[in-house]
Structure formats: structure tokens, C-alpha cells
């Protein structure tokens, strides 16, 4: 029985660590929604793309994912700018429905592109921390990879939160989210902020991807899962509440790991989704309400 507590605690810790990243990915989708009003169905697929990119870099140059980070983050930022400029800028003006078609098309392109290049099998990317284990006292040990993920994820997450709350850019973001027209009257260049936020959202995925290569196994079609997880944190956090999204990420991480621990297999995988459904029924405005 005593071992159970330790194991459970270990699962919670693990969940918290994953939660840092879930929150970050969710924040990307939340910010983009708040500022542009669109939901990118291909969100998770970009992260998948980042992960496969790490795999390619590792296979070709033996580049450790943690170093690939320095390549993917700026690359994805630029990618975000380009995508927004060429595809989404006009779409948002025209009709929000087009965003669905565009992003679903992108889902198919990315997922199947990856399938064609890398094959359907599960893959993962090794990195130098894979075998490092950090012990916290007597109770349990945490794998180095999880720790790094947590530290970086948490830092960036709360860094972004600070940006949104305390800087001019953050005020612009919140202004657009609360009243777009009034923001324009304040001299906010809404179009530019929208493009910037979208690029940041994609860049965040370029960050999360490499961090998660050591923890998650990849398969070509799991991008939609990730989008869904991001979306769950988005709704759980209160549809546009930035802090709520970060917190929801942790909740999601913990419920997932507890689910896997106690139920295992497919039932365990269903737990986060079940929690989501319960939330929709009993507390639809999210854990912190709309902001």
C-alpha cells in the first residue's frame, strides 16, 4: 500500500510536468482565438511537424532535440508569419468558415506528408538526457527529460502570461480581445498584432515539439489529438482566459497520468476526454470563467 502512494505521487508529479506543456500549447490556441477569432484545427499538427523535424535533424546530423529547439523556434515563427500573410489574412476578412477549410486542408497535408516521408510506425527521438534521473529525496525520482520540459514549459508559460498582463503588447492583445474596434481607435495596428500572435502561437509549437520528443512517441496522425488537448485546455480555462488556460493544462496533465495509472490502456486514454465532457455539462464557463 505504501508503494501505491509513492507511485500515485509520481504520477501526479509527471502529470504536472506534462501539464506545463499542455498549458503552453493551449495558450497558443487561446491567444490566437482571442485576437483573431479563429480556431486553427491544424494547431497540433504543427507541433507534430516540429517533432518530426527533430527526428529528421537527429537522423541526418545527430542533432539533439534540445539543440534543434534553437532551429525550430525561429523557423516556426517565420513559418507562422508566412502562413498568416499568405493564407489567413485574407480569409479572416472574407469569412471565418474558410478558416475551417484551410486548416483542415493543412491537417491532411501535414499528416499525410509526414506519413509519406517517415512511414506509419511509432517513432521517437533520443536525447542526451534520456537516461538521466533526478532524485528528489528518498521518495521518488524524476526523469531529467520531464524536469527540463517542466522548467522550460513553465517558464515560458508564465513569461507569456507576464507579457500579456504587464507590457504594452500585452495590453494591445487584451484590448483587441475585449473590443476590436475600440482597440483600432486607440491606434492599435490590429492586423499586425494578429499576424504576430499567430506567429507566436506557431513558434510555441516549435518549442513544445522538441521538448516532447523524448516523452511522447510520434505517429503521423496524432496531430489532431494534440489539437484536441490544446482545445480542451482552451475551453477548460474559460475560452479566452489566459491564466485559466495555463492552469487547465496542469489539470489535464494530472488527470491524464492518473487515468493511465489506474485504468490503463484505452480506458485511461479516454479519461481526459471524459473530464472534458463532464466540464461541459457541469461547468461550461470553465474553471476561471471568461476573461
Amino acid at each position: 500500500m505504501k508503494m501505491d502512494v509513492s507511485v500515485a505521487l509520481g504520477a501526479v508529479i509527471q502529470g504536472v510536468m506534462m501539464g506545463a506543456i499542455y498549458g503552453l500549447i493551449g495558450l497558443g490556441i487561446t491567444m490566437v482565438f482571442a485576437v483573431t477569432g479563429m480556431l486553427n484545427f491544424a494547431h497540433g499538427d504543427f507541433m507534430s511537424l516540429a517533432m518530426y523535424l527533430c527526428l529528421a535533424l537527429h537522423t541526418a546530423f545527430n542533432l539533439d532535440p534540445y539543440l534543434s529547439l534553437f532551429v525550430t523556434v525561429p523557423a516556426f515563427f517565420v513559418l507562422g508569419l508566412l502562413l498568416y500573410h499568405f493564407f489567413f489574412r485574407r480569409t479572416l476578412k472574407a469569412e471565418i468558415l474558410m478558416v475551417v477549410q484551410l486548416t483542415l486542408g493543412m491537417v491532411f497535408i501535414i499528416e499525410n506528408g509526414v506519413l509519406m516521408v517517415f512511414g506509419p510506425d511509432y517513432r521517437s527521438v533520443p536525447n542526451f538526457l534520456l537516461t538521466t534521473v533526478v532524485s528528489m529525496g528518498d521518495m521518488f525520482a524524476v526523469r531529467g527529460t520531464y524536469l527540463v520540459t517542466f522548467l522550460v514549459g513553465g517558464a515560458v508559460g508564465f513569461g507569456l502570461y507576464w507579457l500579456i498582463e504587464s507590457t504594452d503588447l500585452g495590453r494591445q492583445i487584451r484590448a483587441i480581445a475585449q473590443d476590436r474596434e475600440a482597440a483600432q481607435l486607440m491606434g492599435v495596428n490590429v492586423a499586425r498584432v494578429q499576424m504576430l500572435i499567430f506567429a507566436i502561437g506557431i513558434a510555441l509549437l516549435g518549442l513544445a515539439g522538441p521538448l516532447l520528443t523524448s516523452i511522447l512517441t510520434m505517429e503521423p496522425y496524432f496531430g489532431l489529438h494534440l489539437t484536441l488537448f490544446a482545445f480542451i485546455t482552451f475551453v477548460m480555462g474559460g475560452v479566452g482566459n489566459f491564466l485559466g488556460t495555463l492552469i487547465a493544462g496542469y489539470i489535464l496533465g494530472v488527470t491524464e497520468s492518473m487515468g493511465m495509472l489506474y485504468l490503463g490502456g484505452y480506458y485511461g486514454a479516454a479519461v481526459p476526454y471524459a473530464i472534458f465532457v463532464l466540464l461541459l455539462i457541469f461547468r461550461p464557463h470553465g474553471i476561471l470563467g471568461t476573461k
Binding site: R171, Q172, A175, Q178, D179, E181, A182, L185, G187, V188
Partner: peptide, 23 residues
């Protein structure tokens, strides 16, 4: 100064003013 005030409801007075002065 638009009709109906159009302040940013979930920001405080100071933040609204700061937004006004950001040009």
C-alpha cells in the same frame, strides 16, 4: 471617443488610459 464609451471592460482605469496614450 466612441459612442457608448467602449472602455475595455476587464482592464482597470489606468490601463485604459495607458492604451489611449500608446500612439
Amino acid at each position: 471617443v466612441p459612442e457608448g464609451r467602449r472602455l475595455f471592460p476587464r482592464m482597470n482605469v489606468r490601463e485604459n488610459l495607458l492604451l489611449g496614450g500608446r500612439n
